[in-house]
Structure formats: structure tokens, C-alpha cells
Design a protein around this nucleic acid. Structure first.
Length: 486
DNA sequence: ATAAGCACGC
DNA sequence: GACGTACGTGCTTATA
């Protein structure tokens, strides 16, 4: 609809590369500002007069913006968030999108061939193990083969539509039951990496720049996070060995550059510590102690140097579970422990960190009373279901009430850091450029001669984006590719 | 076209 | 007794 504004048509479709003045403010696409499709708007109230001013050039867009922003008017904090955070961020994102990132196409092409061979071997082995041919990529057919034909399990788990569930979680439990299971898991992993990344990314290199240009959306995620698409550069593999090969293909502009990655350490836990004013957790962060070890010591009542690996990994799971509103059942499932033990761990956690529990309850109560929760910078998430009589529906809203202020505040903070950094890097006319944002990480093309200068600037701007009662810590690394930069 | 199931990230 | 961890994007298959 607004693509006729595209300046450089040979850059990829969907890029937010618009004519000089759109909305009378800056080059911006409607997608960047309001997101596509979903009706959720994550940024808070907006000054509609301003929006109309921005959109004066185009009546259709004015109308769209008005509909999206209507009902969210006349709030000072909200206007401030819009004008001082989201609108300035548009310019930053535009530069990042236009800059793009260099991709090692040759490496991916070679890797694709290798994967093709491996997939063909796996396919043969799977048909052999099954005793018949079928479409491995079809969960429906696979389910029938595993649970009707081979009958490898007594009471197979079903999906909500009554199909047999064949997701990774299910298959991992059946690893030792039948040799076909491991083959399927490996096939699935390879197929995913090949189709989504190894084969897809090279086709998305723009002819005009020779680089990969993503699009960022500011108003798709309900919490205020950015999202990335066409292609999504916020879900490039890193966890598995084979996946890391994909990440290696994201490389610096040329031999004079390196990839520099800067990421916030435990930003969401620091935020929950600060917003809840939980002194025990704040102290651990202030003392610079590993938070999962500190948590394990508290929860299991041992000294810091008595925390073993098992205790730390359990504490780590609780710390993450807390952010998402996980129950004792969920924790027990995840850790493979008895529900009673999971409950004891969580009870002990709340005993040691009482303000965390209080903060979670306060957020749920705030949502019940006001209908929304707020982030550090006043971004709202409205929770229509918070008083629902349906316990399942209400439970979802309650977990949103707990998670949204944490995840959203982290988004507020990194957005502020991006604006500050963009300004500072521009001021000095550095050759180094900010390329990507991945929720708690910023990725740069860093000119080798500038690394020593820009690293402290990046750290300073990120760590001091806001002032909290806990220190924000940023870790940086450089390398010949995105994997090495971690 | 759209939905379902699955898998990748934080 | 049921429910059971937030936010996303995109691939393939199956169905309309």
C-alpha cells in the first residue's frame, strides 16, 4: 500500500526505505510505525494531532493511524514515549536497515550441498527403519507411522486437533524406544536449518548493496520489543553445532572490519530486581556475583562456594521461570524432578526474595484494577482478560501482567541506548555502523582502527541508558564473524 | 489463502 | 479435575 514510496526498488521488497518525507517527520514505512496485521499497539498513548500532522500528506494513512491510536489519547507520558523514544528510533532503524549486513554466500552454498547429502542419507535410513516410504516433513504422516504402523508407544500424546504429537519434546522421550527417533530428530534439525537459513538467506542478498537487509517492526510485539522479518535476523541459530555454521556466515563488510557484538548481561533479572526493590537480589548484582550461583546459595541454604552444578542449573531455571510466571508443575517438567521438589524450590525462592513475589502480585493487582500494566518508561499493555471467569484465559493474562513490564522495560532500555549510540556514532563520523538488534544485543560492523574507541562508547551508552538501583552490565566481543564475536 | 505443527531466537 | 513459561518469524504440509 505504501510501497510506491520505495526509493530503491531493487532493494528487497518490504524494506523500510521510503521517500524523504513521509509523515512529515522522517523516511519511514507504515510497517515500521504501526506494524502489519495485528491490532495490538505496543507503544502507549499518542498525540493524535501530531500524528495527523505527520500523516498530512496521505489521507489513507492518516485514517489508519487514527484508528490505531484512537482511544489512547491525551496522556502526557504516552506522548512523551512516542515522541522521545519511538519516533527518534525510526531514524536509527532506517539506517540499520539500509546498512544491511554482509553474508558469506559461498560458505552457505557449500554447506547446503553438504546438508543435501546428509539429508538424503537420513531419508534412506528413515525409510529403512520404518519399513516404508512416507513424507517425513509431514507431522501427520510421521505420527501415523510412529504410533499406528510402528506402534512405538502405548498412549501417544495428541495435539489439540487430535493428531499425534511428534514435536521434539515428545520424540526426545522416545529416543531409546526405536532407532527411527534419533534419525527423525536429526532430519528435522537439518531440514529446518537448510530451508529457513542456509538456502533462504543467499536469495535475500540485495542486488544493489550485496548485503542482507532486514525490516524492523516497532509495533508488532505486545510488550514493546522490536520484531524483525524479511528476513528475520533475530532468530539466527546459535545453540546447536550445525546451527552455529549459519551464524558464522554473517561477516564483516571487508578485511578492514570485524563484527562487534555487545549484549546486556541478565538484563531482565536486573530489571525485576530493580523494579521490585528486592534487596537480596540487588545486592548480588551490586557485588557482581553470578546471579544463578547467588540464587542457588540462597534457595538451597549453602555458602556460595558450596553451590554445585546441579544446584546452579536449578536456580537458573527458577530465575527464568519467574520472568515468565512459571508454575511448580512447569518447573518440575522442565527439570525432570518431582512436583513436590519443584514447589519446595519455588517456595524457598520466594522466601529468600520476598519482594519478587510481592512485585509479581502487585502487577497482577494493578492489571485487575486499571486494566493494564506499565513498563519503566510508561509503556502500557492492556489486559482485557485479567478478570475473566475462565481460569485458563485469566492465567494467561496474569502471566502477561508479570512478564510484560519486565520484557517491555528491557525493550525501553535498549531502544534508548540505540538512539543515544546512533547519535554519538554519527557525531564522530565513524566508519563503524550499528547493524542489528536482537532484544538484548547490538551488532556492529566495526572498523579495526575504531574498535578501541567505539567499544567504551557502546558500553557507556548501553550501561547508562537509564539509571536503576542495580548496575547494568554490557559484555562485548569481536570476531571475523557473528559467532566469533560472542 | 489459511491453518496446523514444528523449530529457530531472546 | 484441568491447567500448567513471555515475545516473535517462517518453513512444510494439508485443506479449502
Amino acid at each position: 500500500m505504501i510501497m510506491h514510496y520505495l526509493l530503491e526498488p531493487d532493494l528487497r521488497h518490504g524494506m523500510n526505505y521510503l521517500s524523504e518525507t513521509y509523515l512529515g517527520y522522517s523516511p519511514i514505512s507504515i510497517e515500521t510505525l504501526i506494524g502489519k496485521g495485528k491490532n495490538q499497539l505496543s507503544m502507549r498513548d499518542v498525540n493524535v494531532e501530531k500524528v495527523k500532522e505527520y500523516a498530512a500528506e496521505d489521507a489513507d494513512i492518516t485514517l489508519q493511524l487514527y484508528h490505531i491510536f484512537e482511544g489512547l489519547l491525551n496522556d502526557y507520558e504516552a506522548t512523551r514515549l512516542f515522541e522521545t523514544l519511538e519516533m527518534p528510533l525510526v531514524d536509527v532503524l532506517l539506517d540499520m536497515e539500509a546498512e544491511g549486513i554482509n553474508l558469506d554466500v559461498n560458505a552457505l552454498t557449500a554447506y547446503s550441498k553438504e546438508m543435501e547429502t546428509d539429508l538424503a542419507k537420513l531419508e534412506t535410513a528413515i525409510y529403512e527403519a520404518a519399513g516404508t516410504k512416507f513424507t517425513i516433513n509431514s507431522p501427520k504422516q510421521l505420527g501415523d507411522i510412529l504410533f499406528e504402523y510402528l506402534k512405538i508407544m502405548d498412549k501417544p500424546q495428541k495435539t489439540k486437533t487430535g493428531q499425534y504429537a511428534t514435536g521434539e519434546e515428545v520424540l526426545v522421550k522416545l529416543k531409546n524406544v526405536h532407532p527411527i527417533v534419533d534419525l527423525i530428530l536429526e532430519y528435522r534439525q537439518l531440514q529446518k536449518l537448510k530451508s529457513t537459513y542456509v538456502d533462504a538467506l543467499p536469495t535475500l542478498v540485495a542486488k544493489s548493496s550485496g548485503r542482507i537487509h532486514t525490516s524492523y517492526n516497532q509495533a508488532v510485539a505486545a510488550t514493546g520489543r522490536l520484531s524483525s522479518n524479511n528476513p528475520n535476523l533475530q532468530n539466527i541459530p546459535i545453540r546447536s553445532e550445525k546451527g552455529r555454521e549459519v551464524r558464522k556466515a554473517f561477516i564483516p563488510r571487508d578485511q578492514d572490519f570485524v563484527i562487534l557484538s555487545a549484549d546486556y548481561s541478565q538484563v531482565e533479572l536486573r530489571i525485576i530486581a530493580a523494579l521490585s526493590e528486592e534487596k537480596n537480589m540487588i545486592k548480588a548484582f551490586s557485588d557482581g556475583i553470578d546471579i544463578h550461583t547467588a540464587t542457588a546459595a540462597k534457595v538451597f541454604g549453602v555458602a556460595l562456594d558450596e553451590v554445585d552444578r546441579d544446584m546452579r542449573s536449578k536456580a537458573k531455571a527458577v530465575n527464568f521461570g519467574i520472568i515468565y510466571g512459571q508454575s511448580a508443575f512447569g518447573l518440575s517438567e522442565q527439570l525432570g524432578i518431582r512436583r513436590g521438589e519443584a514447589k519446595e524450590i519455588i517456595d524457598s525462592y520466594f522466601n529468600q526474595y520476598p519482594r519478587i513475589k510481592a512485585y509479581m502480585d502487585e502487577n497482577v493487582n494493578e492489571a485487575r484494577e486499571k486494566g493494564y500494566v506499565e513498563t519503566l518508561m510508561g509503556r502500557r499493555r492492556y489486559l482485557a482478560d485479567i478478570n475473566s471467569r475462565n481460569a485458563v484465559v485469566r492465567g494467561f493474562a496474569e502471566r502477561n501482567a508479570i512478564n510484560a513490564p519486565i520484557q517491555g522495560s528491557a525493550a525501553d532500555i535498549i531502544k534508548k541506548a540505540m538512539i543515544d549510540l546512533h547519535e554519538e556514532l554519527g557525531k564522530h563520523h565513524f566508519k563503524s555502523k550499528m547493524l542489528l538488534q536482537v532484544h538484548d544485543e547490538l551488532v556492529f560492523d566495526a572498523h579495526k582502527s575504531e574498535i578501541a574507541v567505539i567499544t567504551p562508547i557502546i558500553i557507556e551508552k548501553m550501561q547508562n541508558a537509564v539509571k536503576l538501583s542495580v548496575p547494568l552490565v554490557v559484555e562485548t566481543g569481536t570476531g571475523a564473524n557473528w559467532l566469533e564475536a560472542h
